[in-house]
Design a protein around this nucleic acid. Structure first.
Lengths: 341, 341
DNA sequence: CGTTAGCACTTAAAGCATCTGAGTGCTAAC
DNA sequence: GTTAGCACTCAGATGCTTTAAGTGCTAACG
């Protein structure tokens, strides 16, 4: 990998940085000038030709300058790019923006996403905290009317979910008692992953005439367990897709892809490293072949919990954005952890 | 308004319908053919010229056919368009799609919006039920841990909201008792509109040393009252903006407008009639001047509660879409009312 | 009188040739 | 290994012509 001479590295970095900021192909003459004419344009042309040979640069056509290829970006991100540190002022700005957060994780992510999309001019996507290994910490039944009640579930991961349940017969004090007993014996302390419809069905079978009241309630609890495992997505700045000519060519395809949600969820939960940068074809989904994605996990407590990041053109200011996203994910993790008593 | 001869009306209707389905300007010769050559193209040309004079038609340029103007569409919607009735099969399809709804209004609207956007190829927008005249029917405090609790508020309109509240000191049984007493005396039965921060502050002042525990709890209740009054928006099929050339020209502006939410909320709640069709410039917001909007209110119980509808190009199949949206809003209202015991 | 045929006129869009300029690759000299 | 010099390439801009769709107007028709 280190087969590149000092000068070629410098040339590659300068081309990428110039192209990132202007979007225009870079020619040998211009480049020679920005390097203070320390090397002639002819020399640079030779080096450029080699870099094309190596696959780091491309030319849109013979008489245009060079633009980075996807592996060019990759080499840049891995080897050349300055490891930028966020200025303390920018850190402060992000922190204070997020500080005003009320306790609802979704609200925090919505805000973080909106900051991120404005900061990056890209589509920001985040997934709400989820934890399939969570156990059931607490279940409450809040009667609302004679035949409706709210079921509240608190998971060990701090995730709280609730829903309204309707039953066909009255929810008496006795019913509530039976409900709490069932919770105590079969639910509390168990993993949310173990509670599914099959489990509920075997359970319900032994309830005799209470079946019709209890069944909806227990199904409700099962639904909540499912939703603790699953992640919700937040999108921000979708209109930014149209800001980037590279993306707006098949903007429809891309937006459609994002809104299908299932693959997007997979995208957010699939990446293994704390921070993943996927450039162009490196993305698992073919709809993203023209994009770069940067996603960072955030942790609640000491467990990875969700992700936040961006989808943008391959022409991204990686050096600036990667630290920003990393920092943002850190703040989110801290804030969510604080809430978890 | 009836100044149009039978034939001119027919010509106008045919031009509009042809343009709606093909998007191409309509010429006199083609039109004469579709009318079975019962009138010659020259005659149609004369009538067309009159219709341009009257402002119902436009020509993109001299040598092109005619396209409907905004007032042409308006005349069509008001006078010419066949009052289409939804086929029972389509009605059934919509109903069964929505039937599988669990009891959460947001989920229902999300589903309805996705149906609508697919049905219309437009952006579907809906607002969740809200009622600023609602009164507080019930408030519950669900302790979660020593210092956190969930506050649940049920409004007379059937809207249920909840949130998690953190306090600095322990939420004891005694605290809960005080809380319920305060609810009983100052909150239950009152209008959600009356509960605001100022009210909470005067109330809190008289609480002595309980201030620090109660204040967050009461503020939570006030927040919930606010959220009962306010509406949430649901968007579906946003990528459809890019399906319509007329819209995609300033797609960015439009998407940006929609995501600003405040004006969009105003749009959804401002229309007075049960079903409103606004064509082009008829829209209150300048960002919508190139669009047509069709929105229908739905009622929960016997009160108008929220709206659902679409934003699309002015070239919309009004005859088909208006009944669909009307029907969909009806089903939503019915389903939501059923849930309200 | 309304309707129709005929024809000259208009115009956007497509096709085509030309020109321009940025940038290259190669060769030969340093 | 580096550089100057120069012929070459090609996208994009410019301007011209052609094409085809559709019009408006006039004069004739029933």
């Amino acid at each position: 990998m280190a087969g590149l001479s000092e000068r070629k590295q410098r040339i590659l970095a300068l081309i990428i940085e110039s192209y990132i900021s202007t979007g225009e192909p870079v020619g040998s003459k211009t480049l020679s000038a920005t390097m203070g004419n320390s090397v002639s344009s002819a020399t640079i042309r030779n080096d450029m030709a080699d870099l094309v040979e190596l696959g780091f640069l491309m030319q849109p056509h013979t008489s245009a300058g060079r633009i980075p290829s996807q592996s060019g970006y990759r080499y840049y991100v891995d080897n050349l790019m300055a490891k930028y540190e966020l200025g303390t002022d920018e850190q402060e700005r992000i922190k204070t923006w997020l500080q005003s957060y009320s306790g609802e994780p979704d609200q925090l992510l919505e805000k973080a996403g909106s900051i991120l999309s404005e900061l990056t001019n890209c589509v920001a996507i985040s997934s709400s905290p989820s934890d399939s290994e969570a156990t059931i910490k607490r279940v409450e039944l809040v009667p609302l009317s004679s035949k409706t009640a709210m079921v509240v579930l608190l998971a060990s991961s701090g995730i709280l979910k609730s829903m309204v349940v309707r039953t066909d017969s009255e929810i008496t004090v006795e019913v509530a008692e039976v409900f709490y007993n069932i919770m105590q014996s079969y639910f509390l302390g168990n993993s949310v992953a173990d509670i599914d419809i099959a489990f509920i069905q075997t359970l319900v079978a032994s309830l005799g005439d209470k079946v019709f009241v209890m069944s909806p309630l227990l199904c409700g609890v099962a639904d909540l367990c499912t939703s603790v495992k699953s992640t919700d997505l937040h999108f921000n700045g979708q209109s930014n897709i149209l800001n980037h000519p590279e993306l707006s060519i098949d903007a429809f395809e891309l937006m459609d892809f994002l809104h299908r949600e299932a693959p997007t969820k997979a995208l957010l939960s699939s990446h293994k490293k704390p921070l993943t940068v996927a450039i162009g074809e490196e993305n698992a989904f073919k709809e993203l072949r023209n994009t770069s994605t940067i996603f960072s996990k955030y942790s609640v407590g000491d467990k990875d919990s969700g992700s936040i990041g961006i989808i943008g053109p391959t022409r991204l200011d990686y050096a600036r954005l990667i630290p920003s996203i990393k920092y943002l994910a850190g703040v989110i993790g801290t804030l969510l952890t604080e809430t978890l008593e």
